[in-house]
Amino acid sequence: MTDPWKETADNTHPVNAGNPAGRPTDDKAWKLLEKAVLAGVQEQRRSRRWGIFFKSLTFLYLFGAIFLFGSAFNTEIKGGSDAHTAVIEVRGMIADQENASADKIISALRNAFEDKGTRGVVLRINSPGGSPVQSGYIYDEIKRLRLLYPAVPVYAVITDLGASGAYYIASAADRIYADKASLVGSIGVTAASFGFVDTLEKLGIERRVYTSGEHKAFLDPFQPRKDSETEFWQSVLATTHQQFIDSVKKGRGERLKDRQHPELFSGLIWSGEQALELGLIDALGSTSMVARDVIGHSNLVDFTVEDSPFDRFAKRFGASVAEQLAIRLGLQQTQQLR
């Protein structure tokens, strides 16, 4: 059987008839060939990208393993028999699952007080505040531990910021110190949201909410605000605010000049220099100054409870994997759009 595509002696065949250059005139065949070649190139690119991705994951895994083993051998031993000043960091947002959560701060406080070498505890605060519940837990625990260990004083040192819930915690200390430029105060409670009722109407969208209670969805930003519900919510915030005020007054006592300055509880915030005049703090000073001149032991031992090296590595590793997957999926979507 004769192959119709085999070139003849005069370099012609049925498709190339009348085409002395020997080029096919069938565009469909060339397009199919071109698509096949492009598909192969794209598949090779995908393979290379996945190869790079998995190599990166392997590198991160090995790096993390080295980091974990290195941390295990270089972990600082906290506490000891030598006299020292215990330092506990209250840094960032005060909330559950955060570095400044009640669980972590309370664990650190208990470890510090129970250590036989602790001669005083310093809460080094740099926080905008956060949950009143978490702050209240820490406040109560400081008061409880002070009764159990009357010989171990607690001092709060505000660095950049000690506001709202952070000041709530600081007010439980025996004395509060800050820098002249620190920001102190913000004794108030806030709850914020948005309203999108008019936006939905302009877009022609109908909001449908089904509840088993008359006011169950009163915080829904897509429903009109009712005066009665606003008044109720304001009463909840006012109650929480009064709890905050009572705790600060109990902690600060007569040092707080609230009678002359009722604006102390308005939610305003002051510099450290102003806070000293208002009785919000007791003196200007730093952690090292308090340890050296007030407690009398300049040896600082950090009792802050932080995530383990494994937890930190897991979070970073998870974030890296998510980022790489997002990039990969984004590239794949882009290819599909093309």
Rank of each mutant, 00 (worst) to 15 (best):
P150G: 09
Q223G: 08
F54S: 08
R225C: 00
N126K: 05
W5Q: 05
L278N: 04
S71R: 08
S71F: 07
A65M: 15
I52R: 09
K315L: 04
T240M: 12
F196S: 02
G79F: 10
S182C: 03
W270S: 03
I105G: 03
D115M: 02
V87G: 03
H297E: 14
Q134E: 15
Q335I: 06
M1C: 07
A36W: 11
K55S: 15
H261K: 12
L256F: 13
G92I: 08
L161T: 06
A95S: 12
H241P: 04
A163F: 01
V184A: 07
I295C: 05
A326V: 08
R259G: 12
F218V: 02
F196L: 09
F194P: 02
G64F: 15
A181M: 10
T239I: 04
P128E: 08
G70I: 08
L57A: 12
Q332R: 14
R259V: 14
H13E: 07
A17V: 09
Q333L: 15
V290K: 04
S286D: 12
Y155S: 03
F313R: 01
V189E: 07
R328S: 14
V87P: 02
V236I: 13
K35L: 13
T304A: 11
I77Y: 08
Y137M: 12
T334N: 03
P262K: 06
G64D: 15
I94S: 00
K226Y: 10
G253M: 09
W50C: 04
F222N: 11
F53E: 04
Q134T: 00
F194S: 10
F244C: 03
E76G: 10
R144G: 02
Q332D: 14
R45L: 15
G80L: 08
E323W: 09
L32S: 14
F218N: 08
Q42K: 14
G120W: 03
Q42N: 15
A291C: 13
I158A: 02
N19T: 08
L200N: 15
P4K: 10
E306R: 15
A102R: 01
V15F: 04
K78C: 05
D220A: 06
G130N: 05
V321N: 01
L203I: 05
Q274R: 15
D115Q: 10
L219K: 11
G51T: 11
